[in-house]
Design a protein around this nucleic acid. Sequence first.
DNA 1: TTGTAGGCGTTATCAA
DNA 2: TTGATAACGCCTACAA
Lengths: 359, 359
Amino acid sequence: MPARKKTTISDIAIAAGVSKTTVSRYINGKQNMISAAACKRIEKAIHLSNYHPSAVARSLKTQRSYLIGVVIANITTPFATSLLHGISMGLRDAGYNPIFADAEDSPETELRLTESLMSHQVDGLIVNTTTEDNRNLIELSNAGTPIVLIDRFIRDHNFDIVLAPYSKPTIDLLMHAHNEGYRHIAMFTQPYEENSPRETRLNAFVQCDNEAFGVERPMEDVYIVDPWDANSAGIAIKKLIEKLKGDDGKLETCCILATNTVTMIATYNAIREMNLTIPDPIGLCGPDDWGWARRMGWDWSATFGKGISTYETDPEEMGKEAAKLVVKRIADPNGQKQQIYTPTTLRLRQSTDLKHTLH
Amino acid sequence: MPARKKTTISDIAIAAGVSKTTVSRYINGKQNMISAAACKRIEKAIHLSNYHPSAVARSLKTQRSYLIGVVIANITTPFATSLLHGISMGLRDAGYNPIFADAEDSPETELRLTESLMSHQVDGLIVNTTTEDNRNLIELSNAGTPIVLIDRFIRDHNFDIVLAPYSKPTIDLLMHAHNEGYRHIAMFTQPYEENSPRETRLNAFVQCDNEAFGVERPMEDVYIVDPWDANSAGIAIKKLIEKLKGDDGKLETCCILATNTVTMIATYNAIREMNLTIPDPIGLCGPDDWGWARRMGWDWSATFGKGISTYETDPEEMGKEAAKLVVKRIADPNGQKQQIYTPTTLRLRQSTDLKHTLH
DNA sequence: TTGTAGGCGTTATCAA
DNA sequence: TTGATAACGCCTACAA
């Protein structure tokens, strides 16, 4: 099956017996400038040849592509899934299409992909960046490219950005633990360098551990966990237990704040393997960005034990907001940069219900 | 910050004191046709102005974009995520970029997006289609567009396609249930019209129920479940139980085959809520396309009860293969259409371990 | 209401 | 080794 040559606007013009200009007008909805007769003939010609205008030629001429480049730090997470879905819906509503690129957690890859997207004339960028220190994006932004960051910020430069308000709910969770009577808190986190949401949560933790729990060096209550390594969480738990042992050998109570859902699950499994019980002496809580699971009817956080206390983020909503924001910035390039915070919902469940359990 | 005009090949030509042609040659790696001096000047000019060639103009001229359109039926599943990741990696290795579109399970959306992708001169298409009966793709294919289907086929037309071999492992699982001594089998599936993998699994089930279990009307052992509806699985379980009640009121054993991971989890939860035990009298098994979870160190299928019997698919590998295949088809448009089956791994766990449990 | 002509940023052809 | 020049398919003054 040989590839036929594509039909172009000229073909239609000839077939309909009019000029390219007229056809172009027809395509762009300016039918009120065209005689009914011509309209008919053009319509027919287009239909017969099943002609589709070339977005490429149009982009070249108009310098607009109606394409938005979407760069995701790592697509292999449930968070990214919901994000993409939201972005996709939001852009479509505004007549734009996403070109999507997966940086695979590599700043170099992110740079390369971003350049590729730019050379394809994308009208704007939505970026979930791998790097807090992203010179390239700052340059692009300075050069006038509409850019919206999502979930991760960039230092030393003012960007449009969509965020979940991680600090507040983190503190809410920790204060709840405090009120429940936990003696200690601990934070289990993936490496947090260059990753602003984790940093934000860390800061909230440190502040709370210091102020509410009166701990002098709260960083000592922070444990680095690699959920990709099956043993990592177990090792952290062992270290934690050592610290919690009282003089009588009994464990003091401690509520663990996990940095994200995946870390939380790894931690949960580790706790169970150590034959420790939840919520006493160990409590567990953290963010829940697995909206997709809920949407599928699976409330995962209720499946583990008797339920894990979480705050739910809404990545899909974040995606939608980001989409709206780029489109807005394209229309109004010099408008004020915006920070949008999408709402979060606290869900207190058994995993931190120390008071009740003590009786 | 006003958007500066973009620098073009002409700017570079002027700055370097050469012609556009020479610059073009430089860009395209034909530096051996250029004098060392000119090379130097061009390099310098490009560097100073941080010039990036326009992929759009190039596409228009060469009729190649190095863009592959990727249409996914529904991105809101972990399966799709892994798929995308695989595609993304595979394409990148070959110098192509994915433009990705989410059809949101709607054939109309799929059509619209596909047309949009085509008008952007994509060199090929990778499609996880919503519709078995997809006239549009057949036409495009006939017109010479390189298309690779992934996970879902299209009736009445020969396409390049990447599939998991659902039939064989489904039968393996069911025969295993038979050998374990289950008296009945049942299938819990999402609606399967227009969805080839589910259909394939259904056919395998029907055949097995008939031949191995001697059931006359195997379709009566098929239950439609909507995992998005929390009650749906529960209702199906109740119906099933009615059928399993023997004369003495005791339940006969039955192994449930779930159609996919999400349905399986919904089913698992429903079984537990009914206070039924696994694997006796109810067994549970099905496919596992949650590779991402394992990659994150969470072997989910071991987390539920004492482990669920599954066969693991490898969506990431499927994506990679699809990427390789489009690229190949672009290079060799008239080559034989291929069907690629990616491997699958059987994991037998406690949820179907009836024999052992009986003692 | 319609058409002509020029150009968007490249590459390809041909000649020098 | 280099460079004019003509496309690629479309849009857009400007003119008729």
